[in-house]
Design a protein around this nucleic acid. Structure first.
Length: 305
DNA sequence: AAGACGAAAGTGGTTGA
DNA sequence: TCAACAACTTTCGTCTT
């Protein structure tokens, strides 16, 4: 936990929990997501003695896919010392420089632009570094395979980001990606599917539970309700109510029911808005939940009290 | 008057011949 | 490549609080 976060700005609680994988800090008491975009402080290797440490430790910035040349680029003939050479050698240098320029232009210029766009969208969505990194890698591969041809650069960037989010279980909805990138939702979905298929990226269907903290926080629901919703979700998964359904719809319905049970009633519209689904979908899921999970009793009980 | 409910028709994507 | 299909949306009328 970084030093500067001590208390929840919403309720003043110091009961904060850090989810390193998702790069989120969440208040246990009010469910507020305090910090979403976090630096990964860990080192990814372990060292047991000084000999290993010498091998493992690196100097300088780590190689990264976010930089178009992975931070390892070399320029030919930048300094003035080429003028110490005779004219023949000098010409050789000029030719080399020209070549490097030509090679650089095609793919790398595209990458430069695309990765800038990627950074922009990723920071807008407050995505953790690891996701950005993964998306950059995916995009680079896509460019090398010529998958961008015939598609807009931005849509491939958005698709790569969406895929990376899913892989890291930091789900963002297509709507959110669409809003951040300014690309049509369908277009993102299309390129996402295309790119993952072509690159053979396997992605598990996203888990509705992953959406709960964010939605609950947006709705200002208590942590009690939030864990109730998770409980309901787990129950629903056991009863096979979740397969084949849109994960956001189920997450939304669970939250709606949980809020109902805990007397924190939100309207279907409110929940639908933050989850990016319609009231109808919530109703349908909600009906199924009530029928299969005998939650009716719990609601009645609350009403009686 | 607002929210909840449900029916009906439409949309985009998947699947299987 | 096309048609059937499931999930979800949009729209709209009715009921409840």
């Amino acid at each position: 936990m970084p030093e500067y976060i001590k208390k929840c700005p919403e309720c003043g609680s110091i009961n904060l929990i850090l989810n390193r994988e998702r790069g989120e800090v969440i208040c246990r008491d009010c469910g507020l997501v305090i910090e979403e975009k976090m630096v990964d402080f860990s080192q990814e290797w372990r060292e047991f003695d000084s000999e290993q440490a010498d091998k493992m430790r690196r100097t300088g910035p780590p190689s990264t896919w976010v930089k178009f040349d992975k931070g390892l680029g070399t320029d030919i003939g930048q300094k003035g010392d080429i003028y110490k050479l005779d004219s023949k050698e000098r010409n050789k240098f000029f030719r080399l420089r020209k070549w490097q320029y030509r090679v650089s232009t095609a793919i790398e210029r595209n990458l430069k632009l695309a990765l800038a766009e990627l950074r922009r969208v990723a920071s807008y969505l407050k995505l953790p570094q690891s996701v950005e990194e993964e998306a950059a890698r995916t995009y680079t591969l896509a460019v090398q395979r010529g998958l961008v041809r015939g598609r807009s650069m931005e849509s491939v960037v958005a698709g790569a980001l969406y895929a990376a989010c899913r892989r890291h279980e930091v789900p963002r909805t297509l709507d959110e990606l669409s809003e951040a990138s300014g690309i049509d939702k369908k277009e993102i979905g299309r390129t996402y599917r295309f790119v993952t298929r072509e690159l053979g990226i396997r992605i598990m269907p996203s888990n509705p539970i992953d959406y709960i903290p964010r939605f609950a926080s947006a709705l200002k629901l208590t942590p009690d309700t939030q864990s109730k919703a998770v409980e309901i979700l787990e129950d629903a998964q056991r009863n096979e109510l979740t397969s084949g359904r849109g994960p956001t719809g189920i997450a939304a319905a669970s939250l709606y029911v949980a809020a109902l049970i805990n007397n924190e009633k939100k309207t279907q519209r409110e929940v639908a808005d933050v989850a990016g689904v319609t009231e109808v979908t919530i109703r349908n899921r909600y009906k199924e939940l009530l029928r299969k999970l005998n939650l009716k009793d719990q609601i009645k009980k609350k009403e009686a009290s």
